[in-house]
Amino acid sequence: MKDTAILLEHVSKSYRLSHQPYSSLKGILLSMFRYRRRIEVHQALNDVSLTIRHGETVGLIGVNGSGKSTLLAIIARVIRPSAGRVQVNGRVAPLLQLGVGFHPDLTGLENVYFNGIILGLTRQQIAERLPSIVRFAELEEFIDTPVRAYSSGMVLRLGFAVAVHTDPEIILMDEVLAVGDEAFQHKCLRKIQEFQHEGRTILLVSHDMNQVRQVATRTVWLHQGRVMADGATDEVVRQYLAFTEEMERRAI
C-alpha cells in the first residue's frame, strides 16, 4: 500500500460533554452536591473508514458539527481517536487559521522562523527558503515590522506563505481560504493547483461548494460523524445540496 497517504479504519471519536463542565473550581464544588453528574457522550466521529491515496485532493463537506474538523485534527495527530486505527504516510502540514502561531510583538521575520520550526522545518531550511517565502507573501518592505502593525490580509499571506514552503506531502486546510480578498484567494488556488501537479495530497474542509467543485477531485460528505457519501465531487456535492435544501424546507 505504498500509494496510500492516509488510512482510517473504523475511526470513532467521542467527547464527554458534562452539563456542568469542570472549567472552574466552582463547577467541581457545585457538582459534589448533586446526586450524579450528568455526562453525555457526544459521538463526533462514528466508525469512519477512509483511504486517501497520494496525489488526491479530497473535499470534506458537511453541516456544522458533522465532524469535519475532528477528522482533520485526528489526521494532524492533534487529538487521538477513541477507537480505530489511523495511519498517515508523509509529512503533514496544517494550514493555520488567521494569526494562529503569530506573536504580535515580534517582527514578520521572527514569526516566520517560529512558524516554520513549529511546522517541522529547521532553522537552516527556513533561511534558505526565506526569500521565496517573503516574495510569496508580498511583504518585502514589512518583514522587519512587528506583526501587530500588519493588516489581517498581510498576516494571512505570511502564514500561508510559510505553510506552503514547508514542502509538505499532505496539506490540511480547514476553512483557511474563507478569509482574504479576491487576489489572495486566486493566489491560493493557483498554489493548490501547483501542489496538485506535483502530486501532493490535499484535504480541504470548506462550506464554499464552488471552491470544492473547483479543486477537489473527490469529496467526502460527513453527517453526524458518519460518512454519508464518498465519491466524485460533482455527484457528492449535488447530493449534499439536495439534502440541505430538503432540511431547510422542513425547517420552514
Binding site: 494532524a76 492533534v78 494562529v100 502561531g101 513549529i118
Partner: peptide, 9 residues
C-alpha cells in the same frame, strides 16, 4: 491553545 489544537508537537 489555538496552536495546540492545530499542530502536532
Amino acid at each position: 491553545i489555538q496552536l495546540v489544537k492545530k499542530v502536532y508537537f
